[in-house]
Design a protein around this nucleic acid. Structure first.
Lengths: 349, 349
DNA sequence: ATGAAAGCGCTAACAA
DNA sequence: TTGTTAGCGCTTTCAT
């Protein structure tokens, strides 16, 4: 098992087996049939390789072949239910295809994104999945210069294939459900549905706001732009914004559509101060899923983004070698209050 | 900016600058002072490099130097608040030191772990952080054979430095707090504190069970092994177990110490069926933190593991070049009910 | 202060 | 069916 000594190479195996390095390389590689290596030789080489604990030096192989076997995924953040779920799916799909997944987060920082792409290019990654970049087009440019094939997930880019959640339809579903469950027995001031969280500069949020507006309009309900409160993604800002809203309305509105899980965290931390019956005339929705959010004091209608589906679709494009900028939409799912949704790996805790 | 053509190499720069490849290499490297490159030459080479968009081929460098610049982290799972938080800290610390972080999950599968380590070795990673492996010693053996320095996080290994949460003390704190808040005004049957979730074959869980037992003993409280319900980590099993417990006791026990967030998910999904006043005589604790769990219908005492601290300590060992099997303990934190804990990256949602 | 040359381990023409 | 050879892009002696 050669302990301690330098790693065994194909030269060692060549010497031991009495054949040449190229024969060893061929015998160990996948296309050894076309290289017409003798059956006996191949077997012998394989035996020695496994006996000696040989593993290929992937840097050398990569250098020689001009490709690395690495496939990259760029994320805004690991510490997030949705993104980490993407990671999990990405890994599984990549491994299944014999690639080595490399997942990196860039903290929604443009400079970090660019530097990360450059690093990955330097390591000769063969393909790149880009998720939620702040400047997709700059990244596409870098990739194109390096002839690095890539695609976008969650946030579309205009120079490469993209797979995104159908945010419009998701928000439409959530808004519709909320309207259907909204109480009419509430005073004028508080009778409307509000949208809180996010920024319209963000593609996904903008889509959702659009759907929110249109759904209200189609239901012939009054709408004013002040019903959309763009307070970003921090729990803190959301908490303060919802407090201010309640203050000005004299209580909770008939409906509150919260645009992200982090904003919802803030909203909920404000709700602590409210009496239980405050929720009886309000319907709460959240565009994101969290198992504990399903079991709060009040019912919450949630949307769960289909991370599995996003990654699966992305890999279909990958497999097909797509390069043209198509836009694939994946449907999210409406999760009724008090529902347990089990992810693919829940049992592994 | 050379678009489309093959990547620019030091040979190109050498040709353009009228110097030799080795001079270019030296001028571009960090130790160019000791190589006594002329100031003017160095400047010129640097200029050309940046003009031409040169970036080093890290596979070639790695092959030549026998190291890759990669630093690995092996996790059981991405899809988990604690682990993804470790990822986030790991990345930050690695980058800050100029390493390229590679994070891989192995789904608590022994074979997957081994294969992953082998792959990383093949890519010549220079250092490996191993978190929650099912068979640490097998991995150490592989690493040692490949002369790959490594350390353990969260779960100790006996052949390398380890940084773990102080599970004993955490469980002690949680148990003590729960006892202090437990009602005496409850019938005999339901008067005890129960521990639910996990398996004693798991290091962390075993430590917590130990602390649970000892704390009860020190408080001179009656204890029976049936108060520890080892139902593993799945929400489903936990849900059924807690249902059975309530059934047999005729209601909720005076205290319920839930051993993990996933088990808690199951427990909470059973609690939905209980009336609100069922919790008035029960104190609930969870060894893990979740922001929404802090705002359920009933108060929850939680322990938050210090992922930042774990990674920071691990990097201290890394920086110090530690190889001996020491055991560093990092203190977790007790989070009182209804408390918002903000992580390092919450605002990035 | 700089250049020539070897070699990291592998693969792929091409030759035999 | 197998071996010889060149070269991927870089770093590192060792000369000069």
């Amino acid at each position: 098992m050669n302990n301690g000594k330098p790693k065994v190479t194909i030269y060692d195996i060549a010497r031991i087996s009495g054949s040449s390095p190229s024969t060893v390389s061929a015998a160990l590689s996948k296309n050894w049939r076309e290289r017409r290596i003798g059956d006996a030789t191949a077997r012998k080489i394989r035996q020695i390789a496994s006996d000696s604990g040989y593993t290929a030096n992937l840097q050398a192989r990569g250098l020689r072949r001009g490709r690395s076997g690495l496939i990259g995924l760029i994320l805004p953040l690991h510490e997030n239910r949705f993104f980490s779920s993407l990671s999990q799916c990405f890994e599984a799909e990549a491994r299944q295809r014999g690639w080595c997944p490399v997942i990196v987060s860039t903290l929604r920082d443009r400079a970090e994104e660019i530097q990360t792409v450059e690093t990955l290019i330097s390591y000769a990654v063969d393909y790149l999945f880009i998720c939620g970049a702040t400047d997709p087009d700059a990244l596409s440019e870098l990739c194109q210069a390096a002839k690095l094939l890539h695609l976008y997930v969650d946030l579309p880019g205009k120079d490469a294939p993209s797979v995104v959640s159908n945010n419009f339809h998701g928000a439409q579903m959530l808004t519709t459900t909320m309207l259907a469950n909204m109480s009419n027995d509430i005073d004028e001031m508080r009778s409307r549905l509000y949208f809180i969280g996010g920024l319209s500069t963000d593609y996904a949020s903008a889509q959702r706001m659009l759907a929110f507006r249109e759904t209200l309009k189609e239901a012939n309900l009054p709408f004013d732009e002040s019903q959309i409160i763009q307070c970003g993604y921090s729990p803190d800002r959301a908490s303060r914004s919802v407090a201010a809203l309640c203050e000005s309305l004299g209580g909770l509105p008939a409906g509150l559509f919260v645009n992200s899980i982090k904003a919802f965290e803030g909203v909920v931390s404000h709700f602590v101060h409210l009496p239980s019956d405050a929720f009886e005339t309000s319907v709460i929705g959240c565009y994101d899923y969290d198992p504990f959010a399903a079991f709060l004091r009040f019912p919450v209608h949630m949307i769960r983004q289909n991370s599995n589906g996003l990654i699966a679709s992305a890999f279909e494009l990958f497999d097909a070698g797509a390069q043209e900028p198509v836009l694939v939409q994946v449907e999210p799912e409406l999760i009724p209050p008090r529902t347990v949704y089990s992810g693919s790996f829940t049992e592994l805790g």
